[in-house]
Amino acid sequence: MLIISNYQKQYPGTDTPVLSITKLELAAGCYWIKGENGSGKTSLIKSIAGLLPCTGEIAVNGLNIRNNRMGYTKIVYYAEAEPQYPGFLTGKELMDFYFATKKGHLPHKLIKGLGVDQFMNSKTAVYSSGMMKKLSLVLGFTGNPALILLDEPLIALDAAAVDTLQHTITAYCNQGISFIVTSHQPLDNSIVKVDAGFIIKDKTLLKENQ
């Protein structure tokens, strides 16, 4: 499903890369990436999402981010850790925009389950951090994904929303959609079956039992 080769991420004005991955191949499934603050989890996930430029090759289901960016971004989705949106837009306007570009379908169950339908017609300027997070998750599931990248999906969510999200992840996994999740909080393994865990240590990605 995901192939990463010769990946390296170095920020401008810095001497050393924050993360290097020589080769990584992941089959379809749910994966959990752990690591200390600043270890490079978000950099990796943003690189896979196409938000950050990097060296090396990243491909999902045979679509390379460099050679076929449009096709790649149609199947790789991302929900950020601390979402920010323009205050003058409503959640509905953002959802319509994502839906128009990604096509596919709106995650109606998740919208209802997280209660986003209650506030989506208000401007994001009045959203709390929890509401922003819920909107970001809905946007991350909007369309027709093959891989969903969730950066710290559990922070700022209430208990009911955490439960809804975990059940949604399981339901999507059962449909063959893959997940890469970075989280300091563990997912409930009675709901979500994690296929493998990874840890970022010494600026590289290691499988957890290595």
């Binding site: 971004t73 790789v76 989705y77 991302y78 950020e80 979402p83």
Partner: peptide, 14 residues
């Protein structure tokens, strides 16, 4: 603005 509050657009097929 586009690269801060709309940075996620880079994950869209635009």
């Amino acid at each position: 603005f586009n690269e801060t509050l709309l940075q996620c657009n880079r994950n869209l097929p635009l």
